[in-house]
């Protein structure tokens, strides 16, 4: 019987009898992209939607995000889900700073992306005011399928970006613009 389980294809490279040669960029990119540990920073209803995404029905583990990391030290993606009040902003930033490179950020839902309906004195108008964001997932709240699509886009980033991107001038300037060393 033909299995419906797909495994990741081998990267491009040279193979011969008893050897296979490829570049670290390719291999490490594949390894990273299929083992992204998310840190769920859930503050409201989007967090509920993430629970569905994480649960057995939608099962984010199929994409290598088996283990939600509740410690920023071991996390690869910061998933910010829900309204971030201005008082919460320094905490989001601190969690981001505690994460080790390489790190990605997903803003899930309208509130994390732009403040959403909360055009208010107390609400941060999008987390990109304090930390750089890689992928924005729209919706109020987004469906689990959208969250998975967002995760797959981060997988694409992890797979294709240069391992040294995070040493690039562009990236350094980006962090500098957020006052992050």
């Amino acid at each position: 019987m033909k299995s419906s389980v797909e495994i990741v294809k081998a990267p491009e490279g040279h193979s011969g009898a008893g050897f296979f040669a490829s570049s670290f960029d390719e291999v490490i990119g594949i390894a990273r992209s299929n083992s992204l540990w998310p840190l769920p920073f859930a503050t409201s209803c989007c967090g509920i939607e993430f629970m569905a995404t994480m649960g057995s029905h939608y099962d984010i583990a199929r994409f290598g995000s088996e283990r939600p990391s509740f410690s920023p030290r071991q996390a690869d993606i910061l998933m910010v889900m829900g309204t971030i009040a201005k008082k919460m902003a320094p905490i989001v930033k601190q969690v981001y700073l505690q994460m080790a490179e390489p790190r990605w950020v997903m803003a899930m839902g309208a509130c994390a992306s732009s403040g959403g309906i909360f055009d208010s004195y107390s609400v941060l108008q999008g987390i990109d005011r304090i930390i750089p964001v890689d992928v924005y997932v729209p919706g109020c709240p987004p469906r689990p399928e959208q969250v998975i699509d967002g995760l797959m886009q981060i997988q694409e980033l992890a797979r294709n970006e240069s391992l040294r991107r995070r040493n690039s001038d562009e990236y350094q300037q980006l962090l500098q613009s957020y006052n992050i060393q």
């Binding site: 201005k86 055009d119 004195y121």
Partner: peptide, 26 residues
Amino acid sequence: ILNIEEMDYFPMRRQYPLEDSTREDK
């Protein structure tokens, strides 16, 4: 107690517009 400590105004006073008029994205 609830707002950020750096806030220098009292937000529930009825002297502010409901929406920030300087925003361009909305």
